[in-house]
Simulated scan of single mutants.
Amino acid sequence: MLVHIALPVLVAALFVFVSSSLIHMVFKWHQSDYAKLADEDAVRAALRGSAPKPGQYMLPYCGDMKDLQSPEMQAKWKEGPVATLHVQRNGLPNMGPMLGKWFALNVVVAALVAAVVYSSMGIAIIDSHRLFHVAALVSFLAYAVGSVSNGIWKAQTASSVGKDLLDALIYGLVSGFAFAWLWPTG
């Protein structure tokens, strides 16, 4: 059974990877998702001075929700800025490992989509239209929910979330196409 669904899984992952590459390198519609700070050099210098390790940070930091009751902590939140900071390792980005992880995630998503298709429809499917819809919907959900969560909890802008949802829709459609095209038929 795994041999029969390996091809649609790998092709769906490849289609998503190529679509993502086009979105980010040719169409570049995510380029406006990030803004430059007015005094970037001063912020960089301040961060360098505290030497944060790679990770995720919250500004102001509140280790316990009870601390929000203190006037000092409330003043920090009112004064601002309020930010979530993601710190990466210093140096030029090494795209190879990141792209490898992205492709691996695409394979995992496609494998999970295959599991849903198989458990809901079986291996030898006659209705490829329904298969397309199931695979496209599950793929869309897998790629979309994180962006909505980031919009809620990490202040990602509505336009950025909207573009991420458009990406997810494209990924869902190309995945649905790959599954409908290559899934074993009855």
Results as ranks from 00 to 15, higher is better:
3 V>I: 09
4 H>S: 10
5 I>Y: 00
5 I>N: 00
6 A>Y: 01
16 V>M: 03
26 V>S: 13
26 V>K: 12
29 W>T: 00
31 Q>A: 15
33 D>N: 11
38 A>D: 04
39 D>L: 03
41 D>T: 12
44 R>Q: 14
44 R>K: 15
45 A>N: 07
50 S>G: 07
51 A>H: 10
52 P>H: 07
55 G>V: 01
58 M>Q: 15
59 L>F: 14
69 Q>R: 14
70 S>C: 04
72 E>I: 08
74 Q>K: 15
75 A>Q: 13
77 W>Y: 15
79 E>Y: 02
80 G>A: 15
97 P>F: 05
100 G>W: 07
109 V>L: 10
113 V>W: 09
114 A>C: 09
116 V>I: 15
117 V>I: 13
120 S>L: 15
121 M>Q: 05
125 I>L: 14
126 I>M: 03
127 D>T: 08
131 L>R: 06
131 L>H: 02
133 H>M: 12
133 H>V: 07
137 L>H: 05
140 F>E: 06
140 F>H: 08
143 Y>T: 03
147 S>R: 04
148 V>Q: 06
148 V>P: 03
157 T>F: 00
158 A>M: 05
158 A>I: 10
160 S>Y: 02
160 S>D: 06
162 G>L: 05
164 D>G: 11
164 D>M: 04
166 L>V: 13
168 A>F: 01
170 I>P: 00
172 G>L: 08
173 L>E: 05
173 L>M: 15
175 S>A: 11
180 A>L: 07
182 L>R: 03
183 W>K: 03
184 P>F: 03
184 P>K: 12
185 T>Q: 14
186 G>R: 05
